[in-house]
Design a protein around this nucleic acid. Structure first.
Lengths: 326, 326
DNA sequence: CTGAAAGCGCTTACAG
DNA sequence: CTGAAAGCGCTTACAG
């Protein structure tokens, strides 16, 4: 009814109002200003729902992340949101905790045309099930991906990053390098552990030890270190697969009377902001978090705009940031 | 067209399919199963856009936050998302950086019926302008609010929390208590500084000093402390209005050769998870972050469901968590 | 350059 | 218990 009201006020048809609204060329200037005036008078706000239904595009992107509280995730989301906004898209956020039930409810929005595409950051482990729900809809897998799924992905080379980190620690003279890993539902857990083991083997380091954190919290990191300290000989270095875990590792180490890095070198992963302000500052493997998000959006929009755009698996560079903890 | 396809397949009318879809009572069981079967056969997915347009409700909530990267914000968002999901609503997230331009684009979604209501966490300073855009739409102000705006709010008593924190430090024998504040665009900055000054006055403490951090980062916290250390006599305690700033304060203090808490007691604000794993663990004022989010959703839904529900200003409790840094 | 009409895919009184 | 019809508020060929 609303566009109709404007039309009556301006003495034109709904079509003309629509043309003005969408800045179509070829509306007589005089008509245009009359319509604009009418729009102002009645404070007309277009009903976007109707527009979306009619044009069958919503300019909305669905984002499925497992934990918005994880600083890595929130930085990626920041990147996603900024790029989406720059391209005229908006973000529908679902904090899934990798639970299919929650995911399903949101994906109904995708198949229900409320969103034009989806970016997932869920554990690789549940991607196959998601595939069934998402079907053919435009989809980009961010950070976590399943190579068997026909959807683009953006990630880093986790195996290489882990491999080089172990080599870095070995170069510094460390001989008993432990890994604090987490949940094996995640692809990165497998890849980083793979890199860790490869490096130990290649470097002929026979001491190896892995502790698994139950979740990505400092407490879980502390618990993991305590577990590592129970063995007959202690590690002299710990590589944690997340900065948050590393904070807990350092905390538990100091609590146990160890000096960092003298007695125990610690390296984290992600490159979260606060790592540079810890005591000691934390050495970490920095992921291009904003880029991961931004590129995901770009690839997704490619697919939305040209449904037959090729599927690509993009690998972004990581970077070691050396600080006092190692 | 789609519901029509199902209807043809099942040999009924669109109306009947719709009734089955919405579990209306009074559909003959036999008809029901026939429709359900047809739905399965053609893998029908309802177009939610059409439904939303027709019923003029979207079950979508717009969330405007200034910085998703701030751990406080992401915890509140977590609370918002969880409660919304529990009530059958979804979240549209805008990372505004308190920029009106970005906000305006999202608010168009609200007035354009894509969202049923809005929760803002933006700086109080830009709330008046938002008011103009939001108009009469259901709105809850979370953490930051403007008392002059006719919309509900959920927050804590910042003035009281700051007051009690200063008293707590004074009780511990501290005499030169400084404040590390941030951006005065925020209401909480004013309130906490107010509480700080009130307490000093009431306690007859004449030493006072405030440093302003340019943003909520550890680096800004460090810079603020360095500034405080330039004076003739140093503070013996710092109250920082955010845990993130406090991390930077502690870092710069240690760097300057001060012991925490012996030479300088430090108290943060928010109750972010990692504060307990810092070295030393950080004393902080804990805000009920999930509750702030959850209650905001509840108040907003009240308003959405009954547009004449009264406006309320809810104040949630805060809690001091005492640790080694003070 | 502008308008009348069809249609996006649903839901909901209103009849029967 | 079920169906025909109107309508949510737009946009877009198609005429003129």
């Amino acid at each position: 009814m609303s566009i109709e009201k404007v039309a009556r006020l301006a003495g034109v048809s709904k079509a003309t109002v629509s043309r003005v609204l969408n800045q179509h060329p070829g509306v007589r200037p005089e008509t245009r200003t009359r319509v604009l005036a009418a729009i102002n008078v009645c404070e007309y706000q277009p009903n976007l729902l109707a527009r979306q239904l009619r044009t069958s595009q919503s300019n909305m992107l669905l984002v499925l992340i497992s934990d918005i509280t994880n600083p890595f995730c929130s930085r990626v989301v920041e990147g996603i949101e900024a790029e989406a906004e720059a391209q005229g898209y908006h973000i529908l956020l679902c904090n899934t905790r990798s639970q299919l039930r929650r995911e399903a409810a949101y994906i109904a929005l995708l198949t229900g045309k409320v969103a034009d595409g989806v970016i997932t950051m869920d554990a690789a482990d549940c991607l196959q099930e998601l595939q069934g729900l998402i079907g053919e809809s435009p989809w980009v897998q961010c950070a976590e991906y399943d190579p068997a799924i026909p959807a683009s992905s953006v990630s880093i080379n986790n195996r290489e990053a882990a491999f080089e980190t172990v080599r870095f620690l070995a170069d510094k003279g460390r001989r008993r390098i432990a890994l604090v890993n987490c949940d094996m539902r995640y692809l990165y857990s497998h890849q980083r552990e793979g890199g860790y083991r490869d490096a130990l083997e290649q470097l002929d380091l026979h001491w190896s030890r892995v502790a698994y954190a139950g979740n990505i919290t400092c407490e879980a990191g502390s618990a993991a270190l305590r577990e590592l300290l129970t063995g007959p000989d202690r590690p002299d270095a710990v590589f944690a697969v997340s900065d948050v875990l590393a904070v807990g590792v350092v905390h538990a180490a100091l609590e146990a009377g160890l000096r960092v890095p003298e007695d125990l070198a610690v390296v984290g992963f992600d490159g979260i902001n606060f790592t540079s302000s810890l005591n000691p500052p934390l050495t970490t493997i920095e992921q291009p978090m904003n880029q991961l998000g931004a590129r995901s959006v770009q690839l997704l929009l490619n697919r939305i705009r040209q449904p037959h755009a090729p599927i690509v698996h993009e690998v972004l560079p990581w970077k070691r940031v050396e600080r006092a903890s190692s």
